[in-house]
Design a protein around this nucleic acid. Structure first.
Length: 679
RNA sequence: GGCGGGAUAGCUCAGCUGGUUAGAGCGCAUGAUUCAUAAUCAUGAGGUCCGGGGUUCAAGUCCCCGUCCCGCUACCA
């Protein structure tokens, strides 16, 4: 195993368009903090960096929607996120932000270096341009009528009403979201990072050099590499972000995924003048903690950027967790389906470690997991209170009662005493091995096993009986119990720093250090202990019910909003003449088959009464092809033909769609001849 | 549609390169105990290891087919 002089730990930059929730924490920040704290306790040279990711289109849209500037949005969430992390004891050495001047300069220089080295390829493309605003329009900045559901407020990348994702060129009567004017197609230039150029290197580096990466990470990288890498655009037409530092690139900024990972570098720079040794010395071990949704950026894109630049060390590991669900539903910022960290901290003061414990014990390390409030309560009451808190309390209270809070000197140890204490170094080895291999759930179990060991020891030795029958033996027992307690204080610190500090205060000790984990002489005989107190308290049902009620209210609010959407406002008045232009007919489906390599498309052959023709329709997820044959449907026959997957679609099958996006065919209630007009 | 990951006791998960009666924590049942926040300790019940084929002396573990969940990606009226 390679040994390193120092460590750099990065945690995925949270996107500053909303607060941080338990999914983020379980996936990235709790594990990265445990890892970092462990390294620090071992006395390693370690730096942990993070910060807010503040660029990109969604932030500009949120700003527009709220009538404020993008800077207002990111200022608001940056502060909420930063304070919340601090509140939970996430111990970044620096929590920076990508709107900082240092970052702008760093990212800009980085781009310029690659540009000067000729590491980019330039490509021209036709794109919508707003002549009034004088800028190119990102897909999200174009609104128009959805070709599917006729929603007039569909975006250039997606129709929010029917959920369909679109190309800007698909929109009927597109308009600029900025000025409302009609955009024109104009040629634009973008810079691409030719990932294909780095493919051979990445293949060797990951597939040969890092077989130890987690299965999900390794598998996804392999899949990308096997498919062959393509050049990827690293600039965007937008006015929010870091300007492309090249002549003639006005109105263009760095793609957010280009600038965000550079944020790790900028943050390190802000933290220390010595930043280069953490990024450029091969004796630094870099670990990037991320979620499974951005594996490709951290394992393919960012390493390619660093290599193209030259002089940088690549990550040694990129542990990516899966996702955490909440009460059986996907966590969603827009649907407000989440437990927000800042709200948790306000509603559960003093229970930071409970959340840290639950999220670590239940972390989605190998597959998606579910957070439930009932489980939260059970883990608190049955594990933290009953096992950990209880043992520490027993040791403290017994010592207070029998020896006035002074650590009694141990007499001769029995075999059982020795066997018990001999377990500690073994637990330490397991704990360390698990932490170093990013198995935090298992590692936490190891730490808890020390408390289990303590409870068993007391139950077996029964000092409360011996104090009457064999009082000579009791000092030894309590001395052992207090040594175990001290070991707990060390072992749980990476996971539950607040509780570790509480135990240290109860023991009236300042510092043991990780090196002494496993020792049996941590607290000295004659040492006076501090005041005993409870580490954890039970969480009552009412507290849990309140949280569940809160979520139920969210559900209610969401379905009310859904229903509101269903009753979409009436569209603008059309003239009778306009309506008459549409030729809607009853037609009969003659044949139906799935279009190869698509999920949603069916190719239908229909008899319109006028002719037989083919129509491609996106209903494959709602109807089996066989079930359609012979059915009568309504068809808009004079819609301009359109090519879809190489098939010319001559018309549109009319469908009804409910609020959930479910599509239903419309048919005449009695059989009518094909070709009958509708109107 | 392509690709990746996952599916193991009521719940949350271990099970490394195939090898004795499939493990842990929590929950449940019974017993012990009372120093401790009705906490603890012991014992036990509980599993067609997603379904179906196959390879092998031997498969939760390998291969093939399929189902469901999540992500990436393509395409999309």
């Amino acid at each position: 195993m390679k040994s390193f002089k120092r460590h750099l730990v990065t945690s995925a930059l949270p996107y500053a368009n909303g607060p941080v929730h338990i999914g983020h924490l379980a996936g990235v920040y709790v594990p990265s903090d445990i890892y970092t704290r462990y390294l620090r306790l071992r006395g390693e040279d370690v730096v942990s960096v993070c910060g807010s990711d503040e660029h990109g289109v969604p932030i500009t849209l949120k700003a527009r929607a709220e009538g404020v500037t993008p800077q207002d949005i990111v200022d608001k969430y940056h502060n909420i996120i930063k304070d919340a992390f601090a509140g939970l004891g996430i111990s970044f050495d620096i929590y920076s932000r990508t709107s900082s001047p240092v970052h702008h300069q760093t990212a800009s220089d980085f781009f310029r270096t690659l540009y000067d080295k000729g590491e980019f390829v330039e490509k021209y493309a036709m794109q919508y341009y707003d002549t009034e605003a004088g800028q190119f329009l990102a897909d999200r900045y174009i609104v128009g009528t959805c070709p599917h559901c006729s929603n007039e407020r569909a975006y250039g990348d997606q129709c929010e009403k029917c959920g369909t994702s679109l190309n800007a060129t698909d929109l009927i009567s597109p308009r600029s979201a900025i000025t409302g004017s009609v955009p024109v197609m104009k040629e634009t230039k973008h810079w691409y990072l030719p990932l294909d150029k780095h493919e051979a290197f990445l293949r060797e580096w990951i597939l040969e050099g890092h077989k130890e990466w987690k299965a999900n990470v390794y598998g996804q990288c392999k899949s990308w590499l096997d498919l062959g890498l393509q050049p990827r655009a690293v600039s965007r037409d937008l006015d929010w972000g870091i300007p492309v530092p090249v002549e003639g690139a006005e109105g263009k900024v760095l793609y957010v995924w280009f600038d965000a990972p550079i944020g790790y570098i900028s943050a390190t720079k802000e933290l220390t003048g010595d930043w280069e040794k953490y990024w450029k010395d091969p004796e630094t071990k870099i670990v990037n903690f991320i979620g499974k949704d951005n594996i490709v950026f951290h394992c393919i894109m960012f390493p390619a950027m660093l290599r193209a630049h030259g002089g940088y060390v690549l990550p040694e590991n990129v542990p990516a967790n899966e996702f955490l669900n909440l009460e059986n539903d996907k966590i969603s910022t827009s649907r407000n389906w989440a437990v927000w960290l800042h709200e948790y901290l306000a509603e559960f003061p003093g229970k930071e470690d409970v959340l840290r414990y639950v999220l670590c014990a239940n972390a989605p390390e190998t597959k998606d997991n579910d957070f439930t409030w009932k489980d939260f309560q059970a883990r608190n009451n049955n594990e933290l209170v009953a096992v950990l808190g209880n043992f520490v309390n027993r040791a403290m209270v017994l010592t207070a009662k029998y020896y006035d809070g002074v650590v009694p000197a141990a007499g001769p140890l029995t075999d059982y005493d020795r066997d018990t204490l001999a377990e500690l170094p073994g637990i330490r080895r397991s704990l360390e091995e698990n932490l170093e291999n990013f198995r935090f759930r298992e590692a936490l179990k190891d730490a808890m096993n020390i408390a289990r060991l303590g409870n068993k020891y007391l139950a077996d030795t029964e000092p409360w009986k011996l104090i009457k029958s064999d009082p000579e033996r009791v000092p030894t027992i309590l001395n052992v119990a207090l040594q175990i307690t001290s070991n707990i204080a060390i072992a749980i610190e990476p996971f539950m720093p607040f509780s570790a500090a509480k135990i240290m205060a109860m023991l009236s000790e300042d510092h043991f250090g990780w090196d002494r984990l496993g020792d049996s002489d941590l607290v000295a005989a004659g040492h006076r202990l501090g005041q005993a107190g409870l580490l954890f308290e039970k969480i009552e049902d009412e507290v849990i019910e309140r949280q569940l009620q809160k979520l139920a209210d969210t559900k209610k609010a969401n379905s009310a909003a859904e229903a509101g959407k269903a009753a979409a406002p009436q569209k603008d008045t059309v003239s009778f003449d306009d309506f008459q232009k549409m030729d809607i007919r009853v037609a009969t489906v003659i044949a139906a088959e799935k279009v190869a390599k698509t999920k949603k498309l069916l190719k239908l052959t229909i008899d319109t009464g006028i002719d037989r023709r083919e129509i491609v329709s996106g209903i494959a997820e709602h109807y089996e092809p066989e079930s359609l044959i012979g059915r009568q449907v309504l068809v808009l026959v004079n819609l301009a033909p359109r090519d879809l997957k190489g098939i010319t679609s001559q018309g549109m099958i009319l469908m009804a769609e409910d609020a959930s996006g479910k599509l239903v065919l419309l048919s005449p209630s009695d059989k009518v001849a094909s070709g009958a007009t509708v109107g």
